[in-house]
């Protein structure tokens, strides 16, 4: 007994070492599927404050670039508006028609503006922190977009901050389709460059050509149909040879993300419940 006690006393630093390592590794491995662990991430209140203060300073640095982007986007949109209103004029002379059409498209969604306060693009699993949280109406599973295209899906929410699972995370999977022909697959990122991702499970008989635009499919309530994702850059066979794998150049520049919009859906829960009930019915 005395020897055992001596042994324990002599090597007690080993026990502390093992204890601390176990705590750390438990945190590390449980974070990936443990939704409640928002405390140990930057959705935490204190970390949120520090990041917000730092982004107050740093967000001015790339205003020139943001401005240039916005101007380009503005011009694009103006041309689009011009073209659409001309097309619309041919179909209807009724001026209330335009207003109704716009209401129809965003009828099911409410938009929240948010600012990115922390962002990474080089890890195998990246996360984005935004400065809006539960108190502002943000809930997990909401879609996030920016001016250029799709960004990701809200993962964890704190009171005033939320963590977004962007396309640049191996767990992210977003349903999307080829705009021209409507064949659909899902968008995955496999590490490497932050400008490219892959569309998987594209059927072998699908028609597309390099340079085609990829948009969200609207099959889930997270994103409405037609939000731009990227353009087809390259194609290859999938590993099992049953489908195509499309390399997509993303429209969103994740390295320079600043202002984003969160899409809250009115009908999402109903659709999710329906789909869940189907999955639980199957053996």
């Amino acid at each position: 007994m005395r020897n055992l006690l001596n042994f324990l006393l002599k090597y007690n630093h080993w026990f502390l070492f093992v204890l601390l390592e176990v705590i750390s590794l438990t945190l590390l491995f449980r974070f990936n599927n443990y939704q409640g662990s928002a405390f140990f991430t930057s959705a935490n209140y204190l970390a949120g404050i520090v990041y917000e203060a730092s982004s107050q300073v740093t967000r001015y640095f790339d205003l020139t670039e943001v401005n240039k982007d916005l101007t380009a986007r503005n011009v694009e949109l103006e041309i689009e508006v011009e073209r659409l209103s001309q097309a619309l004029e041919q179909y209807t002379q009724d001026t209330t028609g335009v207003a109704n059409l716009r209401k129809e498209a965003l009828k099911d969604y409410v938009l929240y503006d948010a600012r990115v306060v922390n962002n990474s693009i080089t890890h195998p699993n990246n996360f984005i922190t935004i400065d809006k949280g539960e108190a502002d109406g943000i809930r997990p599973e909401m879609g996030v977009v920016c001016g250029n295209g799709v960004v990701g899906i809200v993962y964890l929410t704190g009171k005033h901050h939320a963590i977004v699972l962007p396309v640049l995370n191996s767990k992210s999977s977003i349903s999307c389709k080829i705009k021209r022909t409507s064949y659909f697959g899902f968008l995955k990122w496999e590490g490497g460059s932050s400008q490219y991702a892959y569309v998987k499970d594209m059927p072998r008989h699908s028609e597309f050509s390099l340079g085609d635009t990829i948009v969200t499919s609207g099959h889930s309530a997270v994103f409405p149909a037609g939000i731009p994702v990227g353009t087809v850059d390259d194609m290859e066979d999938s590993h099992d040879g049953l489908s195509y794998l499309l390399k997509v150049k993303l429209f969103t520049d994740f390295a320079r993300l600043n202002n984003v919009r969160v899409l809250g859906s009115f009908n999402g829960t109903e659709q999710a419940q329906l789909e869940d009930s189907i999955h639980s019915m199957q053996p």
Binding site: L25, L28, F31, T41, S42, S120
Partner: peptide
Amino acid sequence: MLWAFSLGLCIDIFSNTPGLNAATAV
């Protein structure tokens, strides 16, 4: 080791990698 653990955990809290830097620093 206790200093290392708290240092690593602080870094982790800010960089969304709970436990990663803590385990390494310990």
